[in-house]
């Protein structure tokens, strides 16, 4: 059987990749996708810890993931709507060219 650290390693890799995508890609949608990736890495962690934890009967980890999925869905919806609104306003989807987020 696989060990917990394998899952953790995979999740860490996924998380770092998601972070890199968020930081590196210039398309706004890809930034959002990077964030989704990080969220799913966290979800994987939850499930792995649940499964390898001392009391898998309790299902708490799973419920966490369920809620996190709902939040992620909401976040995706709002994020995409924002991207649409930004595009409508500036005609760009390029976070590089949007530098108004300051005082």
């Amino acid at each position: 059987m696989d060990s917990l650290s394998d899952y953790l390693l995979l999740s860490a890799l996924l998380f770092s990749l998601g972070l890199c995508v968020t930081l590196v890609r210039r398309h706004a949608i890809l930034v959002l996708i990077g964030i989704e990736l990080m969220l799913n890495a966290a979800n994987l962690n939850f499930i792995a810890f649940w499964r390898f934890g001392p009391n898998p009967e309790a299902l708490d980890g799973l419920l966490f993931v369920l809620f996190s999925l709902a939040v992620a869905a909401a976040e995706a919806a709002v994020g995409l709507a924002l991207i649409l609104a930004v595009y409508r306003r500036y005609s760009v989807t390029d976070v590089e060219n949007i530098d108004e987020l300051k005082g």
Binding site: V31, E96, I98, D99, L101
Partner: peptide, 14 residues
């Protein structure tokens, strides 16, 4: 540093 780009800010968070 506060250049108004969202990626820069995320970079700081990271």
């Amino acid at each position: 540093r506060q250049n108004g780009r969202v990626q820069t800010y995320i970079k700081y968070v990271g």
